[in-house]
Design a protein around this nucleic acid. Structure first.
Lengths: 253, 253
DNA sequence: CAGGGGTGTTGCACTGTCTGCAACATTCAT
DNA sequence: ATGAATGTTGCAGACAGTGCAACACCCCTG
């Protein structure tokens, strides 16, 4: 692996925290200012880094464009979207779509609740991996050793009293989820919010994404939310069918 | 500028076109496969590149997370301020910066008029949302259903004879503002005060803030104030460019 | 206005890191 | 099996990246 590139790329997350000047960047990289300058220049030429009027550096527009493209390359998203919208129309709650990648679970699509009380989340934001229903489904599908490895590397923050407390508890939960083919999060992240989720599978049966419906207690109780499970699973299966090319897609051509 | 980093970064736009395997990447970079491999590995470790199941590389989800985090940590106010000051220096009138948040429009920055007659307003104070020029711009950019929902929930106080009288009138005005890309308030809040305003947009084109120039009749007439419109819009555009990190690259070499 | 501390920038010699090569590993067809 | 793809590793040599020190340039303060 390349030292120079490694250093250069380390600058990006650093700048994501907020603008920084040359000295700060050099310090946090542990290199000489002149070195940092040259790295920043290179990043700048590629548009990943931008220099604002006070001379400080921040992430540049090119990065946003790339992120956009990366998103568009995820074709599950494209296929799933109309289904998510339809589900949202029929139940009214917030619908999420998430994928697993490199020890993280990320929301890649979201359809907002039609109720005034909304839950906070944002596309691109990493999910609370130890408690979210979608995360459970995605991790439960990993090969056994990998699953164990990931579970043991994670932190288990106690967001609420119902948060997953430890790696062993998490692995047990994953086993359960794996068998039943769906997952829930009942107040594990935020006291008053519940989710039910179902997996989306590719042609080989592997889970490629997971979707969930979330709603706060004040709108529907956990039990009421659970009655939506069949609908959520049907939707996920429909997406799976289309994604794996089993279901003929009606429409153009 | 750094050759290694340059090469590594050139991989990103290349992958943005679609997934590619090691050979393709090496070819298009004009380097040996082993070199390309090491670069890709480094990118991979930083999550910027993801290796899909068929071993081909594509852009990684970490790009999102970065872009997303950068957006959240960006402070419009900080970026806009020097521009507002410059505008104030060239026209002399009061300049405001405002954002929309939770059904309210708030002033978040202000540069005072240099004329003795000043208008009353305060940073952090909610704006007269149904009449202020900045409010019109911010609301005009909301998705249609949300805009309608907000408009119908509002009160329409008759500050003056020219105040917006009703939700339907307001929605009509928002439609107009949306199309022309700028807004005015001619005596809608206080009989003798006029404003012209322009929107500030983020990388995705959404309006993130709005700025205005305000002056009382006794200093300049409404028509005279309107001649400042191009200048106001240029300033807003400059801020937009800087905020979204896409202002033309100035400087070195 | 001189002086001092804070930036960012440049030229240069050295060294350490990146490079390309060639051999190896692995998978897939045939 | 055999061959042709692909991805991977170790190595020696070369050159690109590094840190240094000197410079340029503010913006203060006395």
């Amino acid at each position: 692996m390349s030292q120079t590139v490694d250093r250069a790329l380390s600058i990006l997350p650093l700048l994501a925290e907020g603008p920084a000047d040359l000295g700060q960047v050099a310090d946090r990289l542990g290199v000489h200012k002149s070195t940092a300058l040259r790295l920043l220049r290179t990043l700048h030429e590629h548009g990943l880094v931008y220099r604002q009027s006070d001379q400080r550096y921040r992430l540049g527009a090119r990065l946003f464009a790339l992120a956009q493209e990366a998103m568009e390359n995820l074709d599950v998203r494209e296929i799933a979207h109309p289904h998510l919208v339809r589900l949202n129309e029929s139940c009214g709650h917030t619908v999420h779509l998430a994928v697993y990648e490199e020890n993280e679970v990320l929301y890649i699509d979201k359809v907002e609740s039609r109720y005034p009380v909304r839950m906070y989340s944002r596309i691109g934001k990493p999910v609370a991996i130890t408690v979210a229903a979608v995360a459970k489904l995605l991790l439960a599908d990993l090969p056994e050793h990998e699953r164990r490895a990931v579970a043991e590397k994670l932190d288990y923050p106690a967001y609420t009293a119902r948060s997953t407390p430890s790696a062993t508890a998490f692995l047990r939960e994953l086993e359960k989820v794996r068998e039943q083919g769906w997952a829930t999060d009942l107040g594990g992240h935020e006291e008053s919010i519940n989710c039910v989720a179902a997996p989306i599978r590719g042609a080989d049966g592997r889970v490629v994404a997971a979707m969930s419906v979330s709603a706060p207690n004040v709108v529907v109780t956990a039990d009421e939310l659970l009655t939506l499970l069949p609908l959520v699973r049907r939707t996920a299966d429909a997406i799976s069918g289309e994604y794996s090319g089993r279901t003929p897609v009606k429409g153009t051509e």
